[in-house]
């Protein structure tokens, strides 16, 4: 079964590069892109413009940037962890920031991993490959949680 990845990314270059890197990683997947924090939340909770979506079909992995329009990455993370049906959803922060404060805050809010986007594309490809292999192939996902 094809795993679903939600990529939350506002920079179109970064989006393209990420998609290309995932394409090369060799793990079967489907990627949905949300270009700001509000869209990301709407997708996860099947609200707003994603209201028609089946809310039970949750992504296997959320790749979350921190600097986002409308709703920040930290706020997206906080709301995902606050809802019982998504509190165990794997969320990996993928960002340019290495500020200690950003890292600490992300982990405090319940991020599963924190990855800095490298400038070098080869490095980035390797990172994505490792990410995909780990989260989509090796990692045992939590059993689905019923909305309650």
């Amino acid at each position: 079964m094809t795993k679903l990845i939600l990529l939350v990314e506002d920079n179109s270059s970064d989006e393209k590069l990420a998609l290309l890197a995932f394409k090369k990683c060799g793990v079967p997947h489907e990627i949905v892109v949300a270009r700001d924090g509000a869209d990301a939340l709407d997708y996860v909770f099947a609200t707003g413009k994603f209201a028609g979506r089946d809310p039970a079909a949750r992504p296997a992995l959320v790749l979350l940037d921190l600097k986002l329009p409308r709703v920040s990455g930290h706020e997206v993370l906080r709301r995902i962890r606050a809802a019982p049906e998504t509190q165990v959803l794997p969320v990996v922060v993928l960002t340019a920031s290495v500020e200690e404060e950003d890292v600490l805050r992300s982990y405090t809010l319940g991020a599963n991993a924190y990855i800095r986007k490298p400038v070098d594309f080869i490095e980035f490809s390797n990172t994505v490959k490792a990410l995909g292999t780990f989260w989509l192939q090796f990692n045992e996902a939590a059993p689905p949680v019923r909305a309650g």
Partner: peptide
């Protein structure tokens, strides 16, 4: 860093 990633990535 963001545009730099783009330049490097596409090159």
């Amino acid at each position: 860093r963001a545009p730099l990633r783009g330049m490097n990535g596409f090159a």
